[in-house]
Design a binder for these strands. Structure first.
Length: 826
RNA sequence: GCCGCUGUGGUGAAAUUGGUAUACACGCAAGACUUAAAAUCUUGUGCUCUCAACAAGCGUGUGGGUUCGACCCCCGCCAGCGGCACCA
């Protein structure tokens, strides 16, 4: 088997046109497949099938890769054989920390580590027979590639969507890197698990929040599976409500703060607002401490100072600890509740988040659990504004109304008085785009004392990473690039005076945001991809990936794509039509595979033992494509037996082909045509496990027939298995007469067509039930299934049914044509 | 707490989407071949009662409902998995 694998690998290597996608636009036709060149008219319907490109780690391809890539490959092979012009590309998301760390540890340049790793991945992928179009391979660390990643950043900057801001970032003390909110899990670094702390660092920030609504609305145009849509909507977290300004009582004229603005989703409860709370980071707190507001009723300045300092010392983890109970301090200030006309106190508490809404809330303790807890702890007034029937009370002009109406009415009232307006808030935060590391795309910006931040002229792109001796992260949190004077020092593109380069690099996501566009036109030097080619290929028809990317990569890349769309640079407004989640393969012990647990299965090793086709087919048979399944070697043996029997059967059939063409029996034709239908439908809907089950069933039936089948049937069986077992199929197919061009490869042969005449059942079996219990069955010719009276009569006389009807009265007779009969008796 | 998903034999899982539940595979049992084992092949395999049955009853987490008919639709509960979580 392994020898065969080698033979066919070399064969496929020699004929890369087999899996090549045709662009059908532009002038460069050299990449067309032989099929396209030799045939006058080929089908130009395209399928862009995309599977998330991997991060090429040092440990090589793991089972998860093998699983998801095999699923995508089966689908791609099937579509290709079905006559589609399939693009199924692969590339490398190769910037990132593990490579950098490994490079530091082994004292090699990350460029070399990346090269070694991608070489290894690529050869493993070839061994596993993935039918990628390697002529479109991309690598995010290739300067020719990241030139365009940098170009996109400059467009963001020019559009005002990228700005520099000193902001508290999540700082991982172990990785020495700033993290995006999305990279912080339970206040810990997603990568290393170290608890993150806060640091104030000048960062590039990208305004993804400007696209929040578009990112929600765009989902309607996609066919993403529901859980992905929900995850994105939830992550963006849009809440509709109102911003309301409360007048600060007795604020001095000079104070910049005359009002306290809050966000609420329930303006209808304003009559029940008995206090206000601001986050310790709120600007009001600074103003109070600087004595800039005035009219403070008491003067608890020291108390406030202590509280705020205390909160700052807390880690995120401590701060969000729900069980700790509410803490807070009175600010000494009051605001006027415009609804009630009453003065209510402003408190400072860390349960209010600084970066959501306005960082301040109105406290409605009667109808919000958190506000209630706070009010009870500090003895604040509690006023109900809803009765048990969800109708408003104690609220003047809102009394008696239902919530939805009251919200509308209140917003109108606020707008009329010019103290509030309808407003949406989002959980989504702007995207911190700076990383203080070496192994990433340099951010193509220059700082000039006179002209401020300026983008590098586009003609100077790419800004290449300098090759250096030392790229370890620095302890002060600055990028290692800052230590390279020759690289940092440059001139301002505007005034030509000395200036300094940005030394931060981009996050991982930057390169993977748009890679699917580069596959379309990987060698273009004038633009990231030719518009006409994109018009042909976009959107991606199916995008297969892991659930872990549903909110990070998927949202970022949709955002960048929508931004490019608004610039008129890409042809359609959503990048991915369909998004599918692949499942997870657990270790034999049912646990997630990890080196520490020692339950890691290496696909390469298993493939050497049983053959690649067995591994591929087993992975597809183990369960539904989106399921969570444990590795089980027993089931794998079952698949191996099947493939052995399949090979034996086909070889036997080939030997039995007489010089006169053998004719398949009716029975055999029925089995084979049913199989074509089943496998076609199942692969089309990613139900690989049942497609294989049907193949097993068909082989069992055919073997039991002990008959010879004709050449076409043999070909059909081989073709149907080809997407799952490419080596076995190619070998068996090669033993047949070579009937077409394309070097006789089964993988570009035509997918079998159904002969409908064999799918028509001649007989149908109709179950006969009495009071819903099946008691017998009758068989009749299919074309007679409409003869209701006749059939009911047959049913009543059926040997097994008759005894049940004796002496009973039939109250009702139900007949479902071709399916079943139900007699209701008493 | 919120969002999403799942619950079917000893096990992984099927079920044409409301029409004969348990396909396919594993495991197990018996048998064939073999000095023997492995491999391979054949047969059986949801549960209960039974010497046995092509006999009857029960059976898709659980309690109800709709329907001639429910793994499938509706309502309530229980358990598990994944994600989010002081988001006003």
């Amino acid at each position: 088997m392994v020898e065969n694998e080698k033979k066919w690998q070399e064969f496929w290597e020699k004929h890369p046109e087999l899996y090549r996608a045709n662009d059908f636009v532009g002038t460069d036709r050299s990449v067309c497949s032989k099929k396209a060149q030799t045939q006058g008219s080929v089908r130009t319907d395209k399928k862009y099938i995309l599977v998330e490109f991997p991060y090429p780690s040092g440990s090589g391809l793991h089972v998860g890769h093998a699983f998801s890539f095999t699923g995508a490959d089966v689908y791609a092979r099937f579509k290709r054989m079905s006559g589609f012009n399939v693009m199924f590309p692969m590339g490398w998301d190769a910037f990132g920390l593990p490579t950098e760390n490994y490079a530091i540890k082994t004292k090699q340049p990350p460029q070399k580590v990346t090269k070694d790793n991608t070489d290894k991945f690529k050869s493993q992928m070839k061994q596993l027979a993935f039918s990628f179009d390697w002529s479109r391979e991309v690598n995010t660390t290739d300067p020719k590639y990241y030139k365009w990643t940098q170009w996109i950043f400059i467009q963001l900057f020019k559009a005002g969507l990228a700005y520099k801001k000193k902001m508290p970032i999540n700082w991982c003390p172990s990785c020495k890197i700033g993290l995006a909110n999305e990279e912080v899990v339970n206040s810990r670094c997603e990568r290393c698990g170290t608890e993150v702390s806060r640091r104030n660092i000048d960062q590039w920030v990208v305004k993804i929040t400007d696209y929040a609504d578009k990112l929600i609305e765009g989902l309607d145009k996609t066919a993403f599976i529901e859980k992905v849509k929900q995850a994105q909507i939830k992550w963006i977290g849009k809440s509709e409500g109102a911003n309301v300004k409360f007048k600060i009582v007795g604020a001095i004229h000079e104070s910049p703060l005359q009002h306290l603005e809050i966000f609420t989703t329930r303006p209808d409860t304003m009559f029940g607002a008995t206090f206000m709370v601001v986050a310790p980071e709120h600007e009001l707190v600074d103003e109070i401490l600087n004595n800039n507001v005035g009219a403070i009723h008491e003067s608890p300045l020291q108390k406030i100072k202590n509280y705020v300092e205390n909160v700052r010392k807390k880690s995120d983890l401590e701060r969000t600890e729900l069980t700790k109970g509410k803490t807070g301090v009175f600010s000494g200030l009051y605001v006027l509740n415009p609804a009630t006309g009453k003065e209510i106190p402003i408190w400072i508490s860390d349960f209010v988040l600084p970066n959501y809404g306005t960082g301040a809330i109105m406290g409605v303790p009667a109808h919000d659990d958190r506000d209630k807890e706070f009010a009870e702890k500090f003895g604040l007034e509690i006023i109900s504004v809803y009765d048990d029937e969800e109708k408003i009370i104690n609220s003047d002009f809102l009394n008696g109304m239902k919530p939805a109406d009251a919200i509308k009415k209140m917003i109108d009232w606020l707008q009329e008085k010019e103290i509030g307006e309808a407003k949406s808030s989002y959980h989504l935060r702007d995207w911190i785009f700076s990383r203080q590391h070496y192994w990433g795309e340099p951010i193509p910006m220059v700082y000039c004392e006179k002209c401020n931040w300026q983008p590098v002229p586009e003609t100077e792109l790419p800004i290449k990473l300098p090759e250096v001796e030392n790229y370890e992260p620095t302890d002060n949190g600055e990028s290692p690039l800052s230590l390279i004077p020759g690289w940092v020092d440059t001139v301002c593109p505007i005034c030509r005076e000395p200036a300094k380069r940005e030394t931060d690099t981009m996050p991982n996501w930057a390169g993977s945001d748009w890679y699917f566009l580069r596959y379309i036109d990987p060698f273009n030097e004038k633009t990231f991809a030719d518009f006409e080619k994109m018009k042909y290929w976009m959107p991606v028809d199916v995008y297969i990936g892991g659930d872990e990317h549903n909110t990070l990569h998927l949202l970022y890349s949709r955002f960048i794509y929508k931004f490019l769309y608004d610039l008129g640079k890409v042809p359609v407004d959503e990048p991915y039509f369909k998004r599918l989640s692949h499942g997870v393969i657990l270790g034999p012990d049912g646990q997630r595979m990890s080196k520490s647990k020692g339950n890691v299965i290496v696909p390469e090793v298993v493939a050497e033992k049983y053959g690649v086709d067995v591994v591929r087919m087993y992975l597809m048979f183990i369960g539904p494509f989106d399921g969570t399944m444990a590795w089980n070697e027993n089931t794998l043996m079952g698949v191996k037996r099947f493939l052995d029997r399949f090979e034996l059967f086909i070889k036997g059939q080939i030997n039995n082909q007489s010089s006169n063409e053998t004719v398949s029996s009716q029975n055999a034709e029925v089995i084979i045509n049913k199989l074509i239908k089943g496998v076609t439908e199942d692969i089309d809907s990613f139900k690989f496990n049942t497609a294989i089950a049907k193949s097993m069933e068909a082989l069992n039936s055919l073997t039991a027939l002990k008959e010879n089948i004709n050449l076409k049937s043999i070909q059909t069986l081989i073709k149907l298995i080809a997407p799952f077992a490419p080596y076995t199929a190619e070998e068996l197919y090669s033993q047949l007469e070579k009937s077409d061009e394309n070097y006789g490869s089964v993988h570009v042969s035509e997918w079998p067509k159904i002969d409908e005449k064999y799918l028509k059942e001649e007989k149908v079996t109709i179950a006969v039930a009495i009071n819903g219990k099946v008691r017998g069955q009758i068989e009749l010719d299919t074309d007679r299934q409409e003869e209701k009276e006749e059939i009911l009569k047959m049913a009543k006389e059926n040997d097994r049914v008759k005894p049940w009807l004796e002496g009973k009265i039939i109250n009702k007779e139900i007949y479902v044509p071709g399916k079943m009969i139900n007699f209701l008796i008493s």
